[in-house]
Every structure is written in structure tokens, then in C-alpha cells.
Design a binder for these strands. Structure first.
Lengths: 197, 197
DNA sequence: CCAAAGTTAGTGATTACTAACTAACCTTGG
DNA sequence: CCAAGGTTAGTTAGTAATCACTAACTTTGG
């Protein structure tokens, strides 16, 4: 897995993400992407070996960002509950600033279209899950989250709620404040899985 | 919205769903669909006016099924808690029997590819949400579900958990028992949003 | 008999990608 | 110092393959 990327490659990735977020995955064509980049179709292939490579690179870029941000949060916030909150805050502000990567969260539909893309998406989901699992598990140990329910189930509940929130934001055309609404939604979830109530 | 469908149309819809679930949406082409149906491409157009119409018809068919099943459950189970459980039981056994419609749950990704498909998918999500909202709201009124959290948030949590469960089932290649695992996951969710604990 | 459901043989449009060429910008050796 | 050579990033003009879809004709069941 290559994670190093040239500035020009990043521009292309961002443009591709924007196209998908705006008009859907089916509308991401090399022609349209080249138009957006204000250069010819052939120029794309000076930076990427294939269209698939652009997608994979984009998902890997997002994965790297998630890793970085989650590790930063883990360093900043020690206690499970504020840390869980901070993790979502980080996601919300990131996607607010980079809505072009929203599609990667829901990329599961063009899954099975190519093994490489498939793998990259699974990796992204897994990275998110692992970071979530760590904090939830710790919270259970320290007694702030309920112990009666298996860690993986709590993780599934939290992650599922987060994903649906992102999806509804996207469906609404980003028509509401993802951070504000997300904060209160996550407050609700945390209060539910919390032991204090 | 047309919901009446010929037997032959249903066969085509099922074949299309199977193709998408097996190989991804990008692999649903008129050529491959015709091959599956063991007839020529042109024959497709004796039953549907366009490829888009097939998709829309498929989603509407699923929507109709959801409506029917949820109404049946509402008639069978009065109390909110067992009714919520029965709703998910119904979904699990339905998708177990008809995995070809799984993609429609995640269809939100190829949204914006066409307005008609877009509308049909939104309608499906809305129908599911409304049935869920009804039972959750009733449970809050009767005091079996927590009142401190707004209905719509509880609905988002339950629905998000359900969707992620379905997604993981799909990612795993339907490699586990969706009903068994789903039952305990939903037990966990219901215990969390319940007032008894 | 005729309509419903199939066939063959195409259509133009679009797709991702490539070959061949070039202008501008390093790098390096005499 | 400076020119020869190499690299980078662009260009134009294609390519074969595939796409959804159609026209015109045929078969068949009630």
C-alpha cells in the first residue's frame, strides 16, 4: 500500500471525490475528471496508472487521515467518554471541510467492482472499527460503559448510528449542521451505552 | 407509482437483483441480464421501457413488501417491544430468503444517477423509518422506551444499527446467520433504549 | 387471427486507455 | 558556463470494447 502522494495527485483525488459527491459514482468518468482538472484525459495517466488507481488512492488517503486524527485524539483525550466524543467531533469537522470524501464512507456499493477497491474500502472500515473498539472496550473496563453487552455489539451500535447520520447528511444535500446535530446524536448514544444514565 | 407487475417482470427484477448482489451494480448490464434470463437483450424491452425502469420497479417492489410485512406485524403484535423485535425478525427472514434485494438497502450510493431511482430509494427509506418511528414513539408513550431522548434519535440509532448489520452480512458474503446474530444485536439495542434494563 | 414475447442485426454514444509528439524544466560533464 | 541529455507533464488524435437501446421480422398460444 502506497500512501505517499504528489501534490498533483492529491488535486486529482480531490476533484474525483468532488465529482462523485456531486453527481454520483456513475458520473465519474475520465473525460469529466480531466475537464475538472483543466487538462486532457491523457494527462490523467501521467499521474495514475488507471482510473481504479485514483479511487484506491483516494480511499487510502482517507484511511491515512483517519489513522492520524484518531491517534491525535487518543493522545489528547485520555478518558473513554470524552475521547469517544472527540473522535466524532474530529470526523464531523473533517467531513465538513472535505465533503468530497463523503462517498468513501458509502463506497460499499461499487464494492466487488474491483478487488483492489474492495480491499481499500474494507481496510478503511476496519481502521475506523478498531479505533472505536479500543475506546469502547476501555470504557467498559473502567466502568463508564455498560458491561452487560459485548464490546463488538456496542461498537456496531455506535458505528451504525454514525454512518446513518453521515448518510442522512449526504441525502439532505448537506442541508443541516452535521456537527451540531451529530453532537447531540452522539450524546444520546453515549448516554445510552453509559452506566450513569 | 406502479406496483402491479407481471410474473415475467418479477423474474427479471429478481435476476437483476441477483446480478447486483453477486457482482456489484457496475456489472448489471442489459447484456448480462439478458444472458441470465436466457433470452436476447431486445427481449428485455418487451417487459420494461428502460434499464432504469427495471431498477425503479425493483425498489418499488421491495417497498411494497416492507409495507405489507410491517402492517402484518403491527396486526400480530400489539406491544411496542415484541413488535419491534418482530419487525426485525421479518426483515431478517425476508432478506435471508431474498438476498437479491439486499443491494436496495445500500442503494443510496448510486443515488443521483437518475432522479426516478433516487426518488424510489428515498421512498423506501422513508417507509422503513415511518414504521420504526411509530413503534418507537408508542413505546416511549407507554414507558417501555426511554423518554429522555427524542424519538427521531432513537429511530436513527435503531435504524443505523440495523443497516450496518445488513451491510456486514453482505460484506461477509452472507457468511453468518443474519437472523441469529441480528436477534442478539437487536436484543442489545432494545435493552439499551428500554427503561427496565 | 392476432397480440404477446421472442429473434437478429444492427445503431450512435460513450467508455477507459494508448501512441506519438512536445515544451519546459532540471542535471551533469567537459 | 553552458549545451547535451533526460525527466516531467502536458498535448492531439486516435483505439477497441462496451453501453443502452431500436427496427424489423418471426414464432407461438389462446
Amino acid at each position: 500500500m502506497k500512501t505517499d502522494i504528489t501534490p498533483r495527485q492529491l488535486e486529482i483525488i480531490e476533484a474525483a471525490g468532488r465529482l462523485i459527491t456531486e453527481d454520483g459514482y456513475a458520473m465519474l468518468t475520465t473525460k469529466r475528471l480531466a475537464e475538472r482538472m483543466q487538462f486532457s484525459e491523457a494527462a490523467l495517466y501521467r499521474h495514475f496508472s488507471s482510473k481504479e488507481a485514483i479511487l484506491v488512492s483516494m480511499i487510502e488517503h482517507l484511511t491515512a487521515s483517519v489513522k492520524l486524527r484518531m491517534e491525535e485524539v487518543a493522545r489528547r483525550e485520555e478518558d473513554p467518554e470524552p475521547r469517544l466524543r472527540a473522535m466524532f467531533e474530529s470526523h464531523f469537522s473533517y467531513f465538513k471541510a472535505h465533503p468530497e470524501y463523503l462517498m468513501a464512507i458509502f463506497a460499499t456499493n461499487f464494492m466487488e467492482s474491483s478487488p483492489a477497491t474492495d480491499r481499500a474500502i474494507k481496510e478503511l472500515m476496519e481502521v475506523m472499527r478498531q479505533h472505536l473498539r479500543a475506546v469502547v472496550s476501555e470504557g467498559q473496563k473502567s466502568g463508564v460503559f455498560v458491561k452487560a453487552i459485548p464490546t463488538d455489539m456496542l461498537v456496531a451500535i455506535v458505528m451504525g448510528t454514525f454512518r446513518l447520520h453521515m448518510l442522512q447528511w449526504r441525502i439532505s444535500g448537506r442541508g443541516f449542521d452535521i456537527a451540531r446535530k451529530g453532537r447531540s446524536l452522539m450524546d444520546a448514544v453515549i448516554s445510552l451505552i453509559g452506566t450513569s444514565r
